[in-house]
């Protein structure tokens, strides 16, 4: 009966990146369109609150002191509380306040908002998808599979985006990659303000996309000891590509 399985996918450009929603299963629930609409509507709202490009977003106004945290949407306080926890969990290697050229730290929670928002929005899919779904936000993926097959996720080769390093099979949780392949803005070591250059990319998978994303970003900033640090994380697995091109994985990550 697997031949009768159906798939549907929708894509929108939000928060400056492509975000796509995918459903797979033996039957599609009638209210799937409403659920997908709810996903995208929620992500647009997150963008409105947290955009660092829009000078009128709540985050920008908060950073300029024009709003107090109490005056912001409660989601802003939730994200900043998570950011504090992320800084603690990573020994300061994940920080939403980046040192700028003048030494003044600017608030940019984008690195946390993406995983947080994607994981949160994917809950709309969990309510309607009988079998399998995933949400891919610019290469960071929140997923669930209750059907016969796991999701097969290719890990991009940072030196040759035409190819994948390998495939991991995942049923639930999230997988996120930090690296230099497509972007050069969020790869600063927050402890020094300098560019992190020891690694090409770090991929982390685990039960939560939010934390997989945070750990991948922090591990990238750590550099040389990233794999050892990832190996200590309970429930999360990692893959590191070093500057010289070596591919290293934690013990629980099976690359196919």
């Amino acid at each position: 009966m697997t031949g009768l399985a159906t798939r549907t996918a929708q894509l929108q450009q939000i928060m400056g990146m492509p975000i796509s929603v995918h459903l797979r299963g033996a039957g599609m629930p009638a209210d799937r369109e409403a659920a997908i609409d709810a996903v995208f509507a929620e992500l647009h709202e997150v963008d409105r609150l947290f955009s660092t490009y829009d000078p009128d977003s709540e985050v920008r106004r908060l950073d300029r002191g024009e709003l107090t945290l109490a005056e912001c949407d409660p989601a802003v306080a939730e994200v900043l509380a998570l950011a504090d926890e992320a800084r603690r969990r990573t020994g300061g290697y994940f920080d939403v306040r980046f040192p700028g050229p003048t030494g003044v730290r600017r608030l940019d929670p984008s690195g946390l908002v993406k995983g947080w928002a994607a994981e949160r929005a994917a809950r709309h899919l969990a309510r309607v998808a009988r079998d399998d779904h995933y949400l891919n936000a610019g290469g960071d993926i929140a997923m669930h599979s209750a059907g016969p097959a796991p999701w097969r996720v290719g890990i991009e080769n940072p030196d040759s985006p035409r190819t994948v390093l390998g495939v991991v099979e995942l049923r639930s949780g999230g997988i996120a990659t930090s690296g230099t392949a497509h972007r050069d803005t969020h790869l600063v070591d927050p402890t020094t303000g300098l560019r992190a250059t020891a690694l090409r990319s770090v991929t982390v998978s685990g039960p939560s996309l939010l934390w997989a994303d945070v750990y991948a970003t922090a591990a990238f900033a750590r550099g040389a000891d990233a794999l050892d640090w990832l190996a200590e994380l309970d429930g999360y697995e990692g893959l590191v590509v070093t500057r010289t091109g070596a591919v290293l994985t934690t013990a629980g990550l099976r690359l196919r």
Partner: peptide, 8 residues
């Protein structure tokens, strides 16, 4: 099914 990569 999907590819995890650095942000586009």
């Amino acid at each position: 099914d999907a590819i995890s990569g650095a942000t586009v």
